[in-house]
Simulated assay, not measured.
Amino acid sequence: MLTIRAPAVAGTFYPGLATDLSDDIAALLANAAQDRAKPPKVPHDTPKALIVPHAGYIYSGSTAALAYQCLAAGRQRIRRVVLLGPVHRVPVHGLALPGATAFDTPLGRIPIDTVAVAALAHLPQVVTSPAAHAQEHSLEVQLPFLQTVLDRFTLIPLAVGDATPREVAEVLELLWGGSETLIVISSDLSHFLPYRSAQKVDQDTVQHILQLDSHLTHEQACGGTPVNGLLLAARKHQLQPELLGLCNSGDTAGDKIRVVGYAAVAFRQGGHHEH
C-alpha cells in the first residue's frame, strides 16, 4: 500500500505551483553557474556528498543552488539519494525514517528506496517516526532541487535527532554505495547573531568542516549531528571538501540584526583533504 508524505512547506519555503517552482529553481541554478568564483578542481567529477542549507529559497536558495549545479555530470548516474537533516519540530531518539513509500512535491513523486530501508532495520539508532517528518522542512526543501538536477532516483530520508556522530556515520557507511549514491546533508550554520559576528563564527565553522573536524556544535550548525557524521565518513573515505559558497540571511533577504548562516560544501573522491 502506498503511504505518501505530502509536502508541508510548499507555498511558504518555496513556491507551491509547479511552474513557479521550476522557474525559480532554473533561475537559481543559472545564477549559481555564473557566480562560481572559480571552476571546480575536477570539473567533471560529481560530488559524492553535499552540505546544503535549508531555509526558504529567498534566503538560502542561491547558496543551495551552488551545490546542486555541481551534479550535472551525474544526472543520469545518480540513482539514489541519502538525505539527512535535523529535526526542528518533533524530537526523536536516533535517525528517523518516515514510514512512507514516497514523498510528494509540486514537481512530482519520489519513491523511497524500500530495499535500503530494510537494510537499516537492524540498526538500533534507526527508528520510524512519521510525525518527525510530517512538518519537517530541512529535508523537504532539498527535494525540488534534486528533482530538477537528477533524472529518476529513489530516496532514503532520515530526520536526525538525538544521535552521536558515530551512529550517523554507521548509517552512512551502510548506505555508502558507489557512484550511483549521493549523500546530502541539510544544515544551516549559526542562528540569530548580528551580521558581523555571524560572519566570523561561520567562517570558523567552515574551516573546521574543510579540515573534516567532526566536533561541530549545534550553535555552529543546526544540523551539527548529521554534518559530524558525514565528516567522520568523509575522513574514512578520503573525500576532499570544497567550499562552494558562504553567506547569511543578511546578504540575501533579511536584515543584519539577527541573521542565519548558510554554506554549500561539496565532497569529492580524493587522496587527501585541505587544511
Rank of each mutant, 00 (worst) to 15 (best):
E274A: 13
P111C: 08
T148S: 15
T148K: 01
D20R: 13
S60R: 01
I51N: 14
G250A: 11
I156C: 05
L193F: 11
G270R: 05
D151E: 12
D202F: 08
N228K: 09
D204W: 08
L95R: 01
Q69I: 00
S190C: 13
V201D: 03
Q142G: 01
Q211P: 01
I25H: 13
Y262L: 08
Q34Y: 09
L174R: 15
T128Q: 04
L174D: 02
P144R: 07
C222V: 04
D104K: 12
P91G: 11
P144S: 06
A266V: 08
L123N: 13
A198E: 07
E242H: 05
Y195S: 09
P111A: 11
L232F: 08
A55Q: 14
H122A: 08
H54F: 12
L212K: 04
I25E: 05
A8H: 04
L193M: 07
P124K: 09
L146T: 12
P98W: 15
L150H: 02
Y57I: 05
D24Y: 08
N31A: 04
D20V: 00
E173K: 12
A65R: 02
A49E: 09
V227R: 06
K256P: 03
L232R: 03
L232P: 00
R79L: 07
E140F: 04
Q76L: 10
R79F: 02
A8S: 15
Q147A: 12
H54M: 10
A100I: 11
D104N: 15
T148D: 02
I257E: 14
L143R: 02
L143S: 05
A67K: 00
T217C: 02
A33H: 02
G250V: 10
T205Y: 11
A18M: 01
Y195D: 08
A253Q: 04
L182F: 11
